[in-house]
Design a binder for these strands. Sequence first.
DNA 1: TGGAATACGAAAACTGTTTTCATTACCGAA
DNA 2: TTCGGTAATGAAAACAGTTTTCGTATTCCA
Lengths: 171, 171
Amino acid sequence: MVSINPNSKVDEDLVKEKEAAFAEFIQRRGLKTTRQRNTIVSTFFRMKGHISVEELLVEVKKANPRIGYATVYRTLHLLVESGLVEERRFGDGLARYEGHSAVEHHDHMICLECGMISEFYNPRLEALQEKLAEENNFEIYRHRLELYGACKDKEACQARKKQKEARAQGA
Amino acid sequence: MVSINPNSKVDEDLVKEKEAAFAEFIQRRGLKTTRQRNTIVSTFFRMKGHISVEELLVEVKKANPRIGYATVYRTLHLLVESGLVEERRFGDGLARYEGHSAVEHHDHMICLECGMISEFYNPRLEALQEKLAEENNFEIYRHRLELYGACKDKEACQARKKQKEARAQGA
DNA sequence: TGGAATACGAAAACTGTTTTCATTACCGAA
DNA sequence: TTCGGTAATGAAAACAGTTTTCGTATTCCA
Ligand SMILES: [Mn+2]
Ligand SMILES: [Mn+2]
Ligand SMILES: [Zn+2]
Ligand SMILES: [Zn+2]
């Protein structure tokens, strides 16, 4: 298993690279470069984690309070189309976006007690999926694997887990 | 890989069993037995596949046209709480429910060209996930694995796939 | 069988997201 | 540079799926 660098600093050079890649995408598609898109994109790439629209908007507004939801949504769609960002949904009903360390595929473990999201990648798991698809005459475009559970090494998470169990007993 | 019986007839005895289990759950929770719940539950267990609320409501209305959305939603929640039914979301924005062959865990392959959803279960895959969780100090409550792609053996799916590729080229 | 506790159904409310539409900004051609 | 057509913006309305509300009807036990 390869655990993915959980506390990486946002690398300024990498950010610049992504911004350039997005600019190029905009060109290629014949779209226009705008102040708002630049603000949103550069804000996004400087944040880390799995970012919701709301979270992004809050940051964006610090740079330019006039930017609204619509433009953030629209720009995120462009980022996804450009391939620089991926959309995730972890079952809490809101879309989350990630791009800083990404592009490389990875899967997720989500702690339902503390909300922590950690990333992992395992080649054997990937290969096994391919094999299963093969056997089923299926061609995989992409996949999604999410493990939902609890941190074993955080006391708070274990405590909450036990609380829930007790409550379930009573019900 | 174990492919899961894709064309199973709905087994009348099994349905009765599930209905009884639900009735028992209702008792245990001090809730009331109602005409509507009975209709919804027995309709649900007689359908197969991954059923949306809309789809279920259509069937339910055939038995009792006065039953509305709210009661269907409420009853589905109870079915989920009872453990007899699982909620799924395959990314098209609507909740789907399954219970007929289920309770046993399985994962899904979803064809993005024709909408086909097939089920599979592989013990090695399951074991590998456990191992990865273990290594990460993580305790899995449940997981979700979905392979999105295309049927290799359906001409229509392959044709659509190529259309998309061509379109993407042009853009 | 009376009556409190539940459940029902229609409609309103909600949430996250998308669309509309009037206005403004971009940018290549002149 | 300026112009002008095209694209983008932002506020607000629309949307889709789901949940809640609230007045009425049903269940079921004392
Ligand atoms: Mn991630
Ligand atoms: Mn299934
Ligand atoms: Zn945790
Ligand atoms: Zn297909």
